[in-house]
Structures are given as C-alpha cells and as structure tokens.
Design a protein around this nucleic acid. Sequence first.
DNA 1: AAAACTTTGCAACCTGATTGCATAAACTTT
DNA 2: AAAGTTTATGCAATCAGGTTGCAAAGTTTT
Lengths: 136, 136
Amino acid sequence: MNKDTDNKLKLRNIKPTAMRQLVYDVLSKQKKALSLIEIEQQFENVDRSTIFRTLKTFQDNLLIHSVDDGTGSVKYALCDEDCTCSLNDLHIHFLCTKCGQTHCMKSMPIPNLDLPKDFSFENANFVVKGTCPNCK
Amino acid sequence: MNKDTDNKLKLRNIKPTAMRQLVYDVLSKQKKALSLIEIEQQFENVDRSTIFRTLKTFQDNLLIHSVDDGTGSVKYALCDEDCTCSLNDLHIHFLCTKCGQTHCMKSMPIPNLDLPKDFSFENANFVVKGTCPNCK
DNA sequence: AAAACTTTGCAACCTGATTGCATAAACTTT
DNA sequence: AAAGTTTATGCAATCAGGTTGCAAAGTTTT
Ligand SMILES: [Mn+2]
Ligand SMILES: [Mn+2]
Ligand SMILES: [Zn+2]
Ligand SMILES: [Zn+2]
C-alpha cells in the first residue's frame, strides 16, 4: 500500500483498493500507453474483467485517458494531474510501427481546424504512425 | 454489368467480377464511408467473407481506403481517381456522434507536424468527432 | 453483528474480423 | 472442345478484444 499511489487515486475520488493500486502502478511505471491485455499480462492471477472495470473507473474519473491507435486494442495512459480530459488536454499519439508502442505526445496538441460550415468539433483522435527513436 | 464500373475496376487492375461490381456500386453511391457489415446489409444473399475479401482486394489495389473511426468497425470509402494512398492523399475523417456517419474530408489534408527528434512520420489517422450538418 | 453497498472472480456472451476448405467459375493450354 | 490451372465465392469455424450477469468476498454504515 503505497501512500503516494493511494493519494493519486483519492485525488480523483477513487477508492484505493489493492487492485486499483496495482493497476495504477503498472500504468505509472510505463512511458507508453498500455492495452487491457498488456496490463493483464503484468499480473499472474488477476481477472481481465476486473482490470477492465478498474480502467473504466479510472477513465470515468479522469485519471487515465484512452487511445484507439488502430491496432485493434485500445491503449490507456495516465493523465497529467491537472488534466480534465477536455479539448485543451487532447494531444497527438504516436504509434511505432516497428515496436508497436504507443506514446502520448503531450507536447503536441491537436491542431486547430477550420471545419466546413455546420460541422461542429467535439473531440478528436489523431494518431501518427512511424518509427520511434528506439527503433530508428 | 455496368461498363463504367467495369472500367473503374480495370483501371486499378481488378478483375471486374459481378460481386466486385456490386460492392463498388454500393460504395460509389454513398457519400459516407461504409463498414463491412453495412455493405453486407445492402445485399440479400452475399457472404460476409466474400465482401471482406473484395474490400481487401480493392484496398490492395488502391481503389478504396479505410478509416478506423473508433466505433469498432473499420469504414471504407472510394479513393479519388488520382489517389495513390500516399501522404498527399491523407485526409481528415469526420465522425458524426449523432448519426454515426463517417465522412471523408478530402479538402482537409492531415496537417504538417514537427515531430520530436528521431520520430519519423509514415502515416496518420486523424478522426474528428462532432455533429454533422444533417444532425445539427 | 446485521444490513447495505462495493469490488472482485468466473463463466458466458457479443461483435467484428479473419481463415480453412470445398465448390464453382474463369482462364489457359493442349 | 477437353483437360488442366488459376481465381473467386460460399459456408462454417475460429479468433480476439471487449463486455456482461451473477454470486462470492470484502467494506462501510446502521
Ligand atoms: Mn495520451
Ligand atoms: Mn477518406
Ligand atoms: Zn518503436
Ligand atoms: Zn450526423
């Protein structure tokens, strides 16, 4: 029971159960975004659906955000502490086609767009694919 | 056997079977991008896997491109005649959260990006979500 | 400590995508 | 035109990721 993890969860109004702390710790130790299955594989005996619901709780409470990088599995990454998952917090994600890792490019906001008349902007998913520094 | 459809296929080196003509016609009658299942539903007695393989053939031969709009099903749309599915041909896609339709915004190219050092750009998927003129 | 609520584990299910294999159709060669 | 070869189609089966129902275990409230 890590006091620090504990607080991170409480700050987002998430009751810090053992399970949730474990999942949080897995996410916080990674620079890249992780899929449900990848998180599951970090454990021996934890059920997929429990992790699934944990991630749902995290996302509902803005502790994590998800990316659909087109690989067929949604990836999850921790939000910054001040993140409210609103337009300002949207950023580009980068999928390395060599190693398959998906990175949050938190320094790259989604660019402003002039949509044609009568199209409204609510949200966006911008995934750039290429080779990451590791695989270069 | 529409002579016009026939030619469109031949131009892309696709043998114009009856099946392929039908699928092509469905796609060409739509402004929006269609999923495999949506295409299947346009027919009475055509097998899903046949359409699946038809779409694969079309995509391999640059007749169509696909979009992963995050809805869980990949959408397909015809390419322009001069499209080579290269970087220049990439464009934004718009998913209406009300009606679920996905539109090719062919007039909106993927914006240029300054990726951090040692990240290379190969491809991108940029889906904007919001309300379309129809649902406004 | 009983009642009420929340979290977890397990099995089952769902949906879209994909494959193996046999048949049918189209094309080539003799 | 018949035989041989290649390609396309249909059907059933499988896969993968995601999601749900339900009962047991754990927590919190009364
Ligand atoms: Mn991110
Ligand atoms: Mn398009
Ligand atoms: Zn990489
Ligand atoms: Zn709409």
